[in-house]
Amino acid sequence: MFDLRDPMVPAVARVIRSRHETADVWTLDLELVDAVWPGFSPGQFNMLSVFGVGEAPISFSGEPTDNAHIVHTVRAVGPVSKALCHLKVGDTVGVRGPFGNAWPMDHARGRDVIVVAGGLGLAPVRPVLYRLMADRRSHGRVTLLYGARNPGEILYRHEIEKWRTRLDIDVEVTVDHATADWRGHVGVVTKLIGRARFDPADAVAIVCGPEVMMRFAAKALADSGIPEKEIYLSMERNMKCGIGLCGHCQLGPLFICRDGPVFTQDRLRTLMATKEL
């Protein structure tokens, strides 16, 4: 992929598909123009560049076994992410990566897995779900608890509906508020944790979403008996390099890009509790 001797220089990729997911969220399928994509591990991220605009860290949200497409789900919030969302098929982007560590897929084998996602946080755990479903028999109970702002902002809605029909995975979706036609859960995602079925002594929790939601989800998971070192969270901070050199993504002693973005709750609890760290 990109040249490790010059890790700040991106490779060129082309948009081969763009899907409008929800109001301000798009999924892009990319293909490298002149290089071979090495693949990624669930939890890792790319630095995506829109030329002349800038660069932003974006998690992988595609099928981890598919090396032909680099799939990213992006919410249009800042200048770079807005420009990414507005890209058309055929447009070029810069790609540096994959960077960062991964969700504990090997460690999760043989255990119950509870995935708690909020909002756009479903995107970085979708590769985890693909893996779990492809290798379903290697795991205990598998649960996905997903919270969104409202029914219109539920990401990957058709896929979630498909997953719900599977008997070997518990899928619960809740929204913060709904219109009258919504017949599902309404309330915060942490509420679903108490009702999920897992063996806390032999479970791994994978949590991804806004930091406030992750803080409370991690507490609820710990309250349910899962040890903090078995609760994995993916952190987000400003990043300019993705390789531990620019200094932006520090959280106390941690570089989110270099040491993470995935950390266990026992390492994060006091750091997340410190305001403006």
């Binding site: 301000d24 942490t190 509420k191 979403g209």
Partner: peptide, 19 residues
């Protein structure tokens, strides 16, 4: 208490983009 806490989290509108 749980409902009050949940209400506060909902008030935070954590999934919003806040820009």
């Amino acid at each position: 208490v749980e409902r009050l806490h949940a209400t506060r989290l909902q008030l935070l509108d954590v999934y919003g983009s806040h820009v």
